[in-house]
Design a binder for these strands. Structure first.
Length: 467
RNA sequence: GGUGGCAUAGCUCAGCUGGAUAGAGCACCUGCCUUCUAAGCAGGCGGUCCUAGGUUCGAAUCCUAGUGCCAUCACCA
């Protein structure tokens, strides 16, 4: 997994939490594309170049190991192409006829035919990948209520395509491939089944969508969190489902988000030019540790307490950095300039939360009665501003839910926290001589702390008692 | 070429359904820790809101055209 996948996971997780907070029931679903030509490419490369390498005997994380073979395939494929071109082939022809590609395609046909050896290898390599992914998801703090494997749903997709063919929604070309004509809708013709009868991406997506609605008849809609490079694909998918006569096709949403790019351009798994998710999380934790040690406020913490805190802060910085940006905009990530820990950042907000907890701990010791408060108090301007900002939280949740945008939560929280810090600096809270004012200020602080915690929960970020 | 998205300070980004001198952070400069945590606060510097038209009492925001960047239009996923 790389940084692009992190954005996908964080967005999906956060939007699910936001929708829940807005009053909806949500099933967090992950669709795993565990079949198809891309998997066969890794399998083939492993067979050819793998020398029986396993996660156990190499010490590599399973998903990385398999990813390496995906890269190895591409390298070998490109080498074959350039060799064929030097032998006089036209590049476009070479791209289609490279032996290793033909082998991968043959493997896919074998897989769909249920060939034992191919299916066996497929199961083994996928189990490696899942084990690796599980570890990363756990570190990242995302989880799912339901998993769909496209190897389980593509057959349903093929059946539906056959039905649609009878109904006249699709049509067959002479070579046997099946298509849908969307030119009336201003789109193109789109393939839904290959001429060799194997399923394409669209086939399995049709099947998966129908399976999901069958499994959860109570849902009113589905949100697909997928990058904007697939805008067209989902437009077509939704249209196909509508043409097939599914009424629920009207309530499908594509939460389309921008790519995470590097200064050098796009991240490409195939070419290995990616920011690795696991490495990045480790780096962030390490940076948090360095900063925290320089400040030296936690000498009395145990090593394990410190480690947990560093992780919380490092991950908070990373998640906030990703989620504060409007989903539809692309993110430019420069590995040379590390993610900030000051200003409009996760750690800044976590820090404010920790400060508030410090006040509340002291307030408990002072045995303040936090309930009895008189009406008609004259408010300090900073208190007024703070109250205004506090009141905006519920509507911000609704707005974020409507727009499927965690960025609105992040930016709201930042505004609130900025306001609180200004308040904190200008007025004395526990040092206020007037008891009524003191109680009000402690209550306001408590409320702000609660909102920070709730808001960050919506972003999947934890908050510390101290930092 | 067709379609879609994006374009706001040197950099990274806010700016909700149109409303007053366009806001943050980073960077740079100046102050503030014997007082609730300085990962902070206060202030300074910095903008042709891509361009040109249009709608409107009023446009960063809406419309049209153009420019630039990105994506997509595959028997890839």
């Amino acid at each position: 997994m790389h940084l692009g996948h992190i954005r996908n996971n964080l967005l999906g997780y956060s939007v699910a939490e936001i929708l829940k907070a807005s009053g909806k029931k949500v099933y967090k679903t992950q669709i795993i594309n565990d079949r198809g030509i891309h998997i066969c490419k890794s399998m083939l490369a492993w067979q050819k170049f793998g020398k029986d390498e396993t996660p156990e005997n190499s010490g590599l994380k399973g998903d990385k190991l398999v990813g390496n073979y995906y890269v190895a395939f591409d390298k070998a494929y490109k080498a074959e192409i350039s060799r064929m071109v030097s032998e006089g082939k036209v590049k476009e022809v070479a791209e289609k006829e490279a032996p290793i590609l033909l082998e991968a395609q043959a493997m896919l046909r074998k897989w769909e035919a249920g060939d034992e050896e191919v299916v066996g290898l497929w199961k083994t390599m996928n189990s490696w990948v899942y084990k690796g992914f599980d570890e990363t998801y756990k570190n990242l703090g995302v989880d799912f209520d339901q998993l769909y494997f496209e190897s389980d749903t593509y057959l349903l997709g093929k059946d539906v395509v056959a039905d649609g063919l009878e109904k006249g929604v699709f049509y067959k070309k002479e070579d046997g491939s099946v298509w849908i004509d969307l030119t009336d809708e201003g789109l193109d013709e789109k393939i839904v089944l290959r001429s060799d009868g194997t399923a394409v991406y669209m086939t399995q997506d049709i099947g998966t969508a129908i399976q999901r609605v069958t499994d959860y008849p109570d849902i009113n809609g589905m949100v697909y969190t997928v990058g904007n490079e697939q805008d067209y694909h989902f437009k077509v998918l939704f249209l196909i489902l509508k043409k097939l006569g599914f009424s629920w096709a009207e309530s499908l949403h594509h939460l389309s988000y921008g790519m995470v790019d590097l200064p050098s351009g796009k991240m490409k798994s195939r070419e290995g030019t990616v920011v690795d998710a696991d490495d990045l999380m480790d780096d962030m934790t390490q940076t948090a540790a360095t900063i925290s040690q320089e400040l030296g406020k936690l000498e009395d913490y145990s090593d394990s307490e410190k480690q947990e805190l560093y992780r919380m802060i490092g991950l908070g910085a990373l998640k906030y950095y990703i989620l504060k940006v409007d989903p539809k905009k692309r993110i430019l990530f420069n590995p040379e300039e590390s993610v900030d820990f000051q200003g409009n950042t996760g750690p800044f907000i976590q820090y404010t939360y920790a400060r508030i907890q410090s006040i509340l701990r002291k307030a408990v010791r002072l045995d303040l009665n936090l309930t009895g408060l008189e009406n008609g108090m004259k408010l300090h301007p900073k208190e007024k501003e703070l109250i205004k900002q506090i009141q905006l939280f519920p509507e911000t949740i609704q707005l974020a839910a409507e727009n499927l945008s965690p960025a609105l939560i992040a930016n709201y929280t930042y505004d609130l926290v900025k306001e609180f810090n200004s308040f904190y600096q200008q007025v004395s809270i526990l040092g206020e001589p007037n008891e009524q004012k003191k109680i009000l200020r402690v209550q306001l602080s408590k409320k702000v702390g609660e909102i920070i915690q709730s808001a960050f929960l919506l972003l999947g970020i934890q908050v510390p008692e101290r930092m």
